[in-house]
């Protein structure tokens, strides 16, 4: 059975049918990419998965569990982490602290043990710090470890956001346009990292992406959307050759 299933998902904002009856499945250990023109409803699907929005209809299933209407703060615990199209970092905190927030669901300490700084708290902090350092090394962010993220260049901020999502040790990672705003070299790096995330860390990736070179390089399956409706689904090549997809992009 697929790790992640979306069935007949729909959301209407007033008159706008942002997502209009979309169904797809994401296999464990694969990279699944959603493409489509601006306003197609790609980010909205992510927001439905991370429960920022309530769907009008349809179901979302993850790992055999119906997550269509669980509270937003329960999503991470089930093993889904995400990045945001417009980068949502904790700007006043350092790179390290941002990633430590990513460990929130894995640090089991409560307020009382923290106030007294019980040994269990120190132990949990050190364990999480070790995990975070592995990610900092993996993404080569050592030089920025203690810098407040608000002052970092755009490309670095994107990597920090990816690192924070990885710190949550998700089973599935949602990446909303990981290459937007990056130069060619940085985009190639992102492609490398996405493959490593899938192959080395075994994390399933659900991604929204515009850069077709990157899409072709890393995706196992691609889905094209337009006006909230599914246009085509298949390999990157199949979808790119699909007449409906071509006309959607040309008409845009």
């Amino acid at each position: 059975m697929a790790l992640f299933t979306v069935k007949d998902l729909a959301i209407h904002f007033g008159g706008i049918r942002a997502v209009d009856g979309v169904s797809f499945e994401v296999e464990q250990g694969s990279v699944f990419t959603i493409i489509g023109p601006n306003g197609a409803g790609k980010t909205t699907i992510f927001n439905l998965v991370s429960r920022i929005n309530d769907p009008t209809a349809g179901t979302i299933t993850f790992n055999g569990q119906d997550i269509t209407r669980i509270p937003a703060n329960k999503v991470a615990k089930l093993g889904i982490a995400r990045t945001f199209q417009n980068i949502e970092l904790f700007d006043n905190a350092s790179v390290l602290q941002n990633m430590m927030v990513g460990r929130h669901i894995h640090i089991g300490t409560n307020l009382f043990s923290e106030i007294f700084r019980l040994p269990s708290v120190t132990r949990a902090e050190i364990e999480s710090r070790r995990r975070v350092e592995e990610i900092i090394e993996f993404l080569r962010l050592q030089a920025y470890r203690d810098s407040p993220v608000g002052s970092l260049p755009y490309g670095v901020r994107k990597m920090v956001e990816l690192g924070r999502a990885l710190a949550a040790e998700p089973r599935m990672l949602l990446l909303d346009e990981p290459s937007s705003g990056l130069n060619i070299e940085e985009t190639d790096n992102i492609g490398m990292w996405i493959k490593d995330i899938r192959d080395m860390l075994g994390i399933t990736v659900l991604m929204v992406e515009h850069d077709m070179r990157l899409v072709g390089a890393v995706s196992d399956r691609v889905m094209a959307l337009n006006y909230g409706r599914l246009l085509a689904i298949g390999t990157a090549g199949e979808v790119q050759r699909d007449p409906a997809v071509i006309s959607a992009y040309l008409g845009n």
Binding site: I52, A76, E88, L89, V101, H104
Partner: peptide, 12 residues
């Protein structure tokens, strides 16, 4: 304080 959507998506 810095981003409530991001905080919530991290399980807070």
């Amino acid at each position: 304080r810095d981003s409530d959507v991001a905080a919530e998506s991290m399980g807070i």
